[in-house]
C-alpha cells in the first residue's frame, strides 16, 4: 500500500512540471501587458517597454520560466502587479477563506446528499424518490451561476436574510463574534453550492443503492434470514457508500472550480475571486501561481481518492 502511494506521488512530479510549463506558457500567450492600466495613463509606449524590460518580460520564455521556478522554490511567487503585494501573501489570506467555504460546502453537501440518495434508492419509484429525482434533474439543468445569482437575489436582497458580500462583517468583534459572523457569511454561498454539488452524489448514490439492492449478495443475506433493516445497514448502504467515499477526493476539484463562481458572485474574498480579478487585470504572476496551485490541488484530490478507495475496498487493497 505504501509503495503504491509513494509511486503515485512520484508520478505526480513530472505531471506537476508539465503543468507548470503549460501554465507558464499560457499566461505568456495572454494578450495585453500588466502596466498599461496601472501607471500614469499618459505614459508612452517607450516607458512601458522599459518597464517590461526591467521586469524581465523580454527574456526568452525558458529563461523567464527558469527564473520563475527558482523563485518558486524560495517561496517567492513574485509580486502582484495589481495589488503591489507579494503573491504568496495575497494567496495566503484568501486561501484560508476559500478553505473554510469549501469545507463548509462539502460538509453540507454530504449532509444533504447521503440521506437523500439512500432514501431515494431504497424507496425507488415512490413519491419522495420522484421528488428527489425531479430536484436533481432541475438543478442539473440550471447553470451554477444562475442558481447563485437567483439565490443571492431572493435570500440576500429580497428577503434580506443573509449578507450579500464579503466574508466577515466590519463590526464583528471578539472570538465568538468573529466566528459567528464568518459562519453567517458562508451560510448562503455554502448552501447554494451544496444544493448544486449534491446532485451528482444523489444520483450516483441512488443508482448504487438500487444496484446493490438487486445484487446476489443481498439475496444471500435475505436467505440467511437477516432482517431488512440490517440488510440495508450492513450490506446495501455500506457497499454503495464505498464509491462515494472515493468521490471525496474528486469533489475537491469541483469545489475549487465552483469557488470561482461563488466567490465572484458573492464578492467573497477567496482564491476564486482573486483569480477572476487577476485575469481581468492580466496579473500574470498571480494567475500563474493560482492555476498552478489549483492544478496541484486537483492532482492531490485524485491521489486522495485513490488512497481512500485503496483503504476501503479490499479488492484494491491487496497488492
Amino acid at each position: 500500500m505504501w509503495k503504491v502511494i509513494l509511486r503515485r506521488v512520484l508520478i505526480m512530479i513530472p505531471e506537476i512540471i508539465l503543468l507548470s510549463i503549460l501554465v507558464f506558457l499560457l499566461a505568456k500567450m495572454m494578450p495585453g501587458d500588466p502596466f498599461t492600466g496601472s501607471i500614469n495613463p499618459r505614459a508612452g509606449t517607450a516607458e512601458i517597454h522599459h518597464l517590461m524590460r526591467i521586469n524581465g518580460l523580454y527574456d526568452p520564455w525558458y529563461q523567464q520560466y527558469w527564473n520563475w521556478i527558482v523563485h518558486l522554490f524560495h517561496g517567492n511567487l513574485g509580486q502582484s502587479y495589481q495589488y503591489h503585494e507579494s503573491v504568496a501573501n495575497l494567496i495566503g489570506q484568501r486561501a484560508e477563506n476559500t478553505l473554510w467555504l469549501s469545507l463548509f460546502t462539502m460538509v453540507l453537501t454530504y449532509l444533504i446528499a447521503l440521506p437523500m440518495g439512500m432514501y431515494a434508492g431504497r424507496h425507488e419509484g415512490k413519491l419522495p424518490d420522484t421528488i428527489i429525482r425531479i430536484y436533481t434533474y432541475v438543478t442539473y439543468c440550471i447553470p451554477f451561476f444562475v442558481i447563485l445569482v437567483v439565490g443571492l437575489w431572493i435570500f440576500g436582497y429580497v428577503l434580506n436574510w443573509f449578507p450579500t458580500t464579503g466574508s466577515i462583517s466590519a463590526t464583528a468583534s471578539g472570538f465568538s463574534g468573529t466566528i459567528l459572523s464568518r459562519f453567517y457569511h458562508m451560510l448562503l454561498p455554502g448552501l447554494l453550492g451544496a444544493l448544486f454539488s449534491t446532485v451528482n452524489i444523489v444520483q450516483y448514490l441512488r443508482s448504487e443503492v438500487i444496484d446493490a439492492k438487486r445484487s446476489d449478495y443481498v439475496k444471500t443475506a435475505r436467505a440467511k434470514g437477516v432482517p431488512e433493516k440490517a440488510i440495508y445497514r450492513h450490506h446495501i448502504f455500506r457497499n454503495s457508500l464505498l464509491p462515494i467515499a472515493a468521490f471525496g477526493g474528486y469533489s475537491i476539484t469541483g469545489l475549487l472550480n465552483g469557488s470561482i463562481f461563488t466567490e465572484s458572485i458573492f464578492s467573497y474574498p477567496g482564491m476564486g475571486l482573486l483569480f477572476v480579478n487577476s485575469i481581468s487585470y492580466r496579473d500574470y504572476t498571480v494567475i500563474t501561481a493560482l492555476v498552478l496551485l489549483f492544478g496541484i490541488l486537483n492532482l492531490l484530490g485524485t491521489l486522495l481518492s485513490d488512497i481512500i478507495l485503496g483503504i476501503v475496498d479490499p479488492r484494491i487493497r491487496i497488492k
Binding site: S215, D216, Y217, K219, T220, A221, R222, A223, K224, G225, V226, P227, H235, R238, N239, L242, V312, D313, P314, R315
Partner: peptide, 22 residues
C-alpha cells in the same frame, strides 16, 4: 426470517456475486 437461514438454507448459482465483496 426465523425460518430462512435457520431451517431452510440456500445455495446460489454464482458463488462470486453471492458473496459480499467487502
Amino acid at each position: 426470517n426465523k425460518i430462512r437461514g435457520a431451517k431452510i438454507g440456500m445455495i446460489f448459482q454464482d458463488p462470486l456475486s453471492a458473496l459480499n465483496p467487502l
